[in-house]
């Protein structure tokens, strides 16, 4: 899968920057698709997610506790944004310290399910972001992508091709 990382300027602030992913051939990013799919049915949850993102970017940075860890493979940074108790939406992210978060996709989270593998939509979104996380990790090791001096931005080659 080829993709590009794009910065979400409206959601980035002095404490943290938020990026998302545009897959080759798509005209929308994963996060835009997530918003479009859920902003009508789960409007309150979407507002809550956006408010939390704004607080992270402007006030607190991406603290460990705000994210449900270990949603991917060991060390890949894949996590999910914690949401309000009773929320029915899950949003997957890749976190790089307190300064950068890549927003992926997600979807409705039926309460009875225990593992994401029990829900096809969540499984698909999660596995897609796992693949993206792996490619970014490899690119970091190869020093093709790296952090800016203030750690708030990615620099280097933000297009990832097979």
């Amino acid at each position: 899968m080829d993709f590009e990382l794009v910065k979400i300027k409206d959601l980035s602030g002095r404490k943290a920057s938020f990026y998302t992913v545009v897959r080759d051939g798509d005209n929308k990013s994963l996060f835009e698709t997530f918003l479009e799919e859920n902003s009508i049915t789960f409007k309150n949850e979407i507002f809550d997610i956006i408010r939390r993102i704004k607080t992270i970017s402007n006030k607190t940075g991406a603290m460990d506790g705000f994210f449900k860890p270990n949603e991917g493979k060991p060390g890949d940074g894949l996590c999910a944004l914690y949401d309000q108790p009773g929320s029915k939406l899950r949003l997957y992210c890749i976190r790089f310290g307190r300064e950068i978060v890549i927003l992926g996709g997600g979807g409705p989270k039926p309460k009875p399910i225990r593992a994401l593998q029990e829900n096809e939509k969540l499984k698909s979104e999660n596995y897609q972001l796992r693949e993206i996380a792996q490619k970014i990790m490899k690119s970091q090791i190869a020093k093709e992508i790296y952090f800016s001096k203030d750690y708030l931005d990615f620099e280097g080659e933000l297009k990832f091709e097979d």
Partner: peptide, 30 residues
């Protein structure tokens, strides 16, 4: 660097109630 400009996101951001944002800020800052 490529940046995302999305009208849906902009409109959602505009709809956010400042009081609700302050409540979220408080919970997360604590």
């Amino acid at each position: 660097m490529k940046e995302l400009n999305n009208t849906l996101l902009s409109s959602l951001l505009n709809e956010i109630d400042p009081l609700d944002q302050a409540k979220t800020d408080a919970k997360m800052e604590i």
